[in-house]
């Protein structure tokens, strides 16, 4: 936990627009560079609090048995979520499968979270920890700008495989997996569309990859936009379409947040379809620009 203290002064002296994420960068880049992206102080504090108070598996499992729990529909996710604890987002409860460790494999300190708070050993991946938990965030669509970057760098400072190259083979493997998972978590949550798809997956609703639709209104619109992109001859025209897409995306992100918030998953899926189409348009524009 000491390193959090070390990060805070860095945050105060950040310079704008300097850092760029390079995945799989050597650890040295994480440690040398200052954190330059805006991370609200309060949020960071909030996150730190969470990491100082990691999920208490045993107590949560027993003491809250009378509270309302929700069982996830996705058979892949074997844990129950205690909805009363969503507020601080650290409440989760393992289903108690034997392979899941609730103690550090090295020093036996209970409740390690990605790493052991006591000895710093990297722990094996616990799949009941979802991406939102990794970043100490509530499981909802809207996340504040910059709430991921700081945590992402912090995790990489602790989990990066370069750090454990002198350790045992097991721990090196844990570090490789954990660090890769944090990268996945970061890239998934950073972009609204992938975040939306991930949220739906956590609810047990998968986007059907093979579904075909014949909605003339939507498809007609997309066809027109794609033709416009194809015919656009200068970057000005492309930029104009791009800003239109951004506007549409913002609108549909809101629609998704509302639909998801009210558990209208069918509607949420529809908004994801729209967003995917607009997102594709943007990808094409970027290729042409």
């Amino acid at each position: 936990m000491l390193s959090f203290g070390r990060v805070l002064p860095l945050l105060a002296y950040r310079s704008p627009k300097m850092w760029k994420i390079v995945l799989r960068t050597p650890l040295s880049t994480f440690t040398r560079k200052t954190l330059t992206h805006s991370v609200p102080f309060q949020l960071l504090q909030h996150n730190i609090t969470q990491y100082q108070n990691p999920p208490r598996l045993s107590t949560l499992c027993t003491s809250n048995s009378t509270q309302r729990t929700r069982v996830f529909r996705n058979p892949k996710i074997h844990f129950t979520w205690n909805s009363e604890l969503l507020g601080n987002s650290s409440g989760f409860c393992s289903s108690g499968s034997p392979e899941e460790t609730s103690c550090c494999w090295n020093c036996k300190t209970p409740r390690p979270f990605l790493i052991c708070q006591s000895c710093g050993s990297v722990q094996p991946v616990d799949h009941s920890v979802d991406y939102f938990m990794i970043f100490g965030l509530e499981r909802k669509f809207d996340i504040e700008d910059g709430s991921l970057e700081g945590m992402y760098k912090n995790w990489q400072k602790k989990l990066h495989p370069d750090l454990v190259h002198t350790k045992s083979k097991e721990e090196r493997e844990y570090a490789a997996e954990q660090s890769a998972r944090v990268i996945d978590a970061y890239t998934t949550l950073r972009k609204p569309l992938s975040r939306a798809i991930y949220l739906m997956r956590l609810e047990g609703v998968e986007v059907d990859e093979e579904q075909t639709i014949s909605e003339p209104e939507l498809l007609g619109e997309i066809m027109e936009i794609r033709e416009a992109v194809e015919e656009a001859t200068d970057s000005q025209a492309l930029n104009k379409i791009q800003s239109q897409m951004e506007e549409k995306l913002r609108h549909w992100f809101n629609s998704f947040a509302n639909a998801f918030g009210s558990k209208s998953f069918d509607e949420a899926l529809k908004t994801i379809q729209r967003m995917t189409y607009y997102h594709r348009v943007n990808e094409e524009i970027i290729k042409k620009l």
Binding site: V207, D208, E209, E210, Q211, T212, I213, S214, E215, P216, L218, L219, G220, I222, M223, R226, I272, Q273, T276, Y277, H279, R280, V281
Partner: peptide, 14 residues
Amino acid sequence: TGLVGAPACGDVMK
């Protein structure tokens, strides 16, 4: 005219 799409890939076919 048949206009169909595969929303997961963002494909559209006329």
